[in-house]
Amino acid sequence: MRKMMMVVVLGIMPVAGRACTMLAPFEMDQIGGAELVIVGKVTGYQDLGTAWDAALVTVQVEDALKGKAGGEVTFIWNGGMAQGPYETRATGRVLIGAMRGGRIAVSDRAPDVRPDLPSIVQPYCGEVWMQPATKATVAEARKALE
């Protein structure tokens, strides 16, 4: 019984409960599920310092592969259980799959800090839908969106 109680306690603790046993890799065939797919250069990153992990990623849009976007767009990146926002991922030229209107799954444990901004897709136990925008990656995204 004591072991069971420890498992329950560890499961509800913010840090220990966030761990996923496996990070599901990003698969390009999923990109069609995004409402907005853009290619652009990251011009800014700001960690919001929240307990539930959130950051702002500002991108100068070069091309909108799905949806409409242009100029400079600021996205909210809400962390998942396996991967949270970190600055080294949000650099250079990127391909982003996003949804309109902030956090995809809002709860009391993970409130939506910026529902006014498009949210970079971050599955709870999966890799973020922000990838380096190499020629091959962009070509693969275009093909997946056909």
Rank of each mutant, 00 (worst) to 15 (best):
L10K: 11
G11T: 12
T74K: 02
T43K: 13
V15L: 15
W52T: 12
V37P: 01
A54R: 10
V8T: 14
G40K: 03
F26T: 04
K41D: 15
I31W: 09
G33A: 14
L36R: 07
A19Q: 10
L36Y: 04
V37I: 07
D29M: 05
T50C: 07
Q46P: 00
V8R: 12
C20F: 09
L48C: 03
T43D: 08
K41R: 15
N78M: 11
V39P: 06
G71V: 07
A51G: 00
D63G: 00
I12Q: 09
W52G: 02
V42Y: 08
Q60T: 14
T21Q: 04
G11A: 14
V9N: 01
T74G: 03
T21I: 05
T43I: 15
G71N: 09
V42L: 08
E27Y: 10
Q30A: 11
V39H: 06
G70T: 10
V37H: 04
G17P: 12
D53K: 15
G67E: 09
W52M: 05
C20H: 10
V39A: 07
V15W: 13
L65E: 12
E72C: 04
G70Q: 15
G17M: 13
P25G: 01
N78G: 08
V42C: 03
G67N: 05
I12W: 12
I38N: 02
W52E: 12
Y45F: 15
V61C: 02
R18V: 00
D53Q: 14
A69E: 06
Y45D: 11
K68N: 13
G33H: 10
W52K: 08
P14R: 10
A19E: 09
Q46F: 01
T43G: 02
E62L: 10
G44V: 08
M13H: 14
L10H: 03
V9D: 09
L23S: 02
G70Y: 01
D29C: 00
G17D: 13
Q60M: 11
W77I: 00
C20V: 10
L10Q: 11
Q60I: 01
Q60W: 01
A55L: 07
A55F: 04
T58Q: 04
M81H: 14
